[in-house]
Nucleic acid binder design. Structure first.
Length: 421
RNA sequence: GGAGAGGUGACCGAGCUGGUUGAAGGUGCGCGCCUGCUAAGCGUGUGUGGGGUUUAUACUUCACCGAGGGUUCGAAUCCCUCCCUCUCCGCCA
């Protein structure tokens, strides 16, 4: 959420940002509602103030055994007027709040401006793509031959877009999760946390998934609960409504969780196999920091994600997302894309973002600065990494001519130090 | 699912026979004083959000005692609904 005061004073800036992010928001309505709200509030406050003052006379008069019926009669007039104003105020406030929640975050000034992903900016790459002395197989073929997945039966029990890992495939997926968690905890000093994947409406609104992305999420109607599309949601909301001490910052959390995405409207597009699935595991990094450090921390976060790919010796590239491709809540995002040599494509395995105070304002996550003033924290997160696509890259990169898979060095401790899957 | 207890400020904890109580008291924390160290003591300050006046400091006002409704001239205090925590019982992975 943006500060209404900021919007008031920077209408042009906000309008540009909305346009660059391909969003449509009725800013005029926001400004009108804001004006209206303040007007009603002033009237309400004034009236209430008078009412309170008169009301406070009653106990005094009663003590002196004086008649208070006239005073009360007078107050009855106030009461009805106050009630009308109060309901008007509540109505306008609700409308304003609703509109404010639809305004996206402002992109940071160094984010490339552009309509869509074709305007994303290549930043750098790492690693040499493997040259094969034989025809490398695509991951789905490998999975089939090695019986690593059971897609058909997963579809039978849940529907298309769900996958089942089995045998060595299940073990490889689990090894990846454990490796990533252990690595971030030991090498990068993250604190592990495991939170619910089913969350309430307020939580979903806090990180910015609601109201915009309602159709992309699984919703349990009976309880009005949602399945998280990423553990960013639960972890970032950990401190919602709280005021942290300066000594509590920064905070670095690492969390593995299942992620659930309806992927509405993306049928037929990369829906085969593992590239785009309704349910998957992801190891997520979430940070809470003071505003002055957040862009430095964004770079750290990017490095932490890169370290995983480097440890796995998987070539990748980093791109900086253009304004039109940025998520609703993000001010700046880097995508990490791993090279899948047989599919011959880069696959997004991590998205690293700085939300500045956008989520903190929505979820009311604050801290007390050196002067004792209450400020919003900055929140950041990054995948470290998404499991299925990392899984793809490993199979394709580490395949051998005889159909076996060499286990990446850093994963071998999770396989009794064996070299072949 | 049933029965009971409860949810108050950073924390503990009064208030809950409705009326100067945004909230006693304590702890913690800030500042000042005193004590040649330490411990202790004294004074004083210390919630969040919104509005208005203001260059700023500041002043002023409204709201907030789990959330939302209701009763009332007036609600932390009474009533209703919901959420959460704890205890006991039942049921079930």
């Amino acid at each position: 959420m943006l500060d209404i005061k900021f919007i008031r004073d920077n209408v042009d800036l906000v309008e540009d940002a909305i346009k660059n992010k391909n969003e449509t928001v009725n800013l005029d309505l926001v400004l009108t509602l804001d004006k209206e709200k303040r007007k009603i509030q002033f009237e309400y406050d004034t009236l209430r103030s008078e009412q309170n003052k008169i009301s406070q006379q009653i106990p005094k008069l009663k003590k002196k055994n004086k008649d208070v019926s006239k005073v009360i009669d007078n107050l009855k007039n106030y009461s009805s007027k106050v009630k009308i104003l109060a309901s008007k105020l509540a109505e306008v406030e609700e409308q304003l709040e609703k509109e404010l929640l639809k305004i996206p975050n402002l992109p940071n000034s160094d984010v490339p401006i552009g309509q869509n992903e074709s305007d994303n900016k290549f930043l750098r790459d790492w690693g040499d793509k493997r040259k094969f002395g034989f025809q490398p197989k695509k991951h789905l073929k490998i999975c089939k031959e090695q019986k690593l997945l059971d897609i058909k039966r997963a579809a039978k029990i849940s529907g298309s877009g769900f996958v089942g890992f089995q045998h060595k495939g299940a073990k490889l997926a689990r090894a990846l999760i454990n490796f990533m968690l252990d690595y971030h905890i030991e090498k990068h000093n993250y604190k592990e946390i495991s939170l619910p994947v089913i969350v309430n409406r307020k939580t979903m609104t806090g990180t910015g998934q609601l109201p915009k992305l309602a159709d992309d999420m699984y919703h349990i109607e009976k309880d009005d609960l949602f399945l998280v599309p990423t553990s960013e949601v639960s972890v970032t909301n950990l401190y919602s409504g709280e005021i942290l001490g300066l000594e509590d910052l920064p905070q670095k959390f690492i969390s593995n969780s299942l992620c659930f995405r309806r992927e509405a409207g993306s049928h037929g597009k990369e829906t085969k196999g593992l590239q785009r699935v309704h349910q998957f595991s992801k190891v997520e990094m979430v940070k809470f920091v003071t505003p002055d450090t957040s862009y430095e921390v964004l770079d750290d976060l990017l490095n932490d994600a890169e370290d995983i790919l480097q440890a796995l010796e998987l070539p990748y590239r980093i791109i900086s997302l253009a304004t039109g491709d940025l998520s609703f809540a993000s001010a700046k995002t880097y995508d990490l894309e791993v090279w899948a040599p047989a599919t011959e494509r880069y696959l997004e395995v991590s998205s690293v973002s700085n939300f500045e105070d956008f989520q903190a304002r929505r979820a009311s996550i604050r801290y007390r600065d050196v002067n004792g003033n209450v400020q919003f924290v900055h929140t950041l997160n990054g995948s470290g990494l998404a499991i299925p696509r990392t899984f793809i890259a490993i199979l394709e990169t580490y395949q051998n001519e005889d159909g076996t898979i060499t286990i990446p060095k850093v994963l071998r401790p999770y396989f009794n130090n064996e070299k072949i899957l």
